[in-house]
């Protein structure tokens, strides 16, 4: 087991370095000169630009800049924006909102998706199964912004249950509506995946053995089928959580939540390299950590992974 965890972390380190370098290199080789852009319509004097470039090490080769950056990461320094603020501080203000939003959405997606998938799988081919299939596909097909705006209109304006914008009302009131919209989008995948997994498991020989042993249906489904079906779903959910954290831009904009998605969007628009890389790096780190955690959970659930 320790060996397994060790191997996972080494893999994680390799992926981390590879991916951050690619992002770093891409952001800083993008066309457009952020220093020149700082001055807006009135270009800064040549010597000021040169000084700024030296200050931000932009005159050095990309790989050296990258090494400096990684070195900084280990001392907790995420770099400085071109207007002189630490990237760490800018992100710190934004993360709680995005994390709250994403985790709320994630929780809704997991609980609802797994339950719907289980019910669907047990009623394979029945009316309920088909209704759920159509329902979840519909929910996925409607663009997020349409869902978001409609939800604001119905639940925010007409029914007045939730605020339509801002994080001021706190959790859960301010987050429930946007989180549900995000969750609805991912729900179809989780439900379908869980459903397929349940159907496969129900067909397997050991379920027949359990029935032949005289185990009650409740036990067969609740203990054996659940634990066997949930592994592939978890793997998908790990990827999905990363997506949720980085992909809430549209929802944050619609519901006017000052989260990390809004920050990332602004940073890309203004060629704010250090911020883009900082946010991306943090996202990658979260993404990788989640996948390790999920792998560990999977290996606890399935001894075959543990003993591989």
């Amino acid at each position: 087991m320790t060996r397994y965890i060790g191997r996972r972390f080494i893999e994680l380190a390799i992926v981390f370095i590879g991916v951050t370098f690619i992002i770093y290199a891409m952001v800083f080789t993008l066309p457009g000169d952020p220093i020149a852009a700082l001055g807006g319509d009135r270009p800064l004097p040549e010597n000021v630009q040169a000084q700024l470039r030296a200050e931000y090490h932009l005159d050095e080769p990309v790989w050296l800049q990258y090494l400096r950056y990684i070195g900084g990461l280990f001392t907790g320094d995420l770099g400085t924006t071109f207007d002189g603020r630490p990237v760490g501080d800018r992100m710190a203000a934004r993360w709680p909102i995005t994390i709250t939003l994403a985790l709320t959405a994630f929780a809704i997606e997991v609980v609802v998706g797994v339950i719907l998938g289980l019910v669907s799988g047990l009623r394979n081919g029945g009316i309920l199964d088909r209704t759920l299939l159509i329902g979840t596909i519909l929910a996925t097909s409607v663009p997020v912004f349409v869902l978001g705006v409609s939800a604001q209109l119905v639940f925010g304006l007409q029914l007045g249950w939730f605020p339509i914008a801002g994080a001021g009302a706190g959790w859960p009131t301010a987050y429930l509506l946007p989180a549900t919209v995000i969750a609805l989008f991912g729900l179809a995948s989780v439900t379908r995946l869980m459903r397929g997994s349940v159907v496969d498991t129900l067909r397997s020989d050991f379920v027949r053995t359990l029935t032949a042993k005289g185990m009650p249906r409740r036990n067969v489904v609740g203990v054996h089928v659940m634990r066997n079906s949930v592994t592939p779903v978890l793997t998908f959910l790990a990827i999905d959580l990363g997506y949720l954290l980085g992909g809430t831009v549209v929802i944050e904009a619609i519901f006017n939540l000052p989260g990390i998605g809004a920050l990332l969007f602004d940073a890309i628009r203004t060629h704010e390299g250090p911020t883009v890389v900082g946010v991306a790096t943090a996202l990658i780190l979260i993404f990788l950590m989640t996948s390790v955690v999920v792998d560990l959970i999977n290996s606890l659930l399935d001894p075959r992974i543990r003993h591989e």
């Binding site: 397997s204 050991f206 053995t209 042993k213 005289g214 634990r227 066997n228 001894p303 075959r304």
Partner: peptide, 21 residues
């Protein structure tokens, strides 16, 4: 009746047991 009066063993023993318990 199942398991108490009549019980059953199957063809493929490696798939007849739940792999995660």
């Amino acid at each position: 009746i199942r398991g108490r009066k009549v019980s059953m063993i199957f063809q493929d023993p490696s798939n007849a047991l739940d792999p995660v318990f």
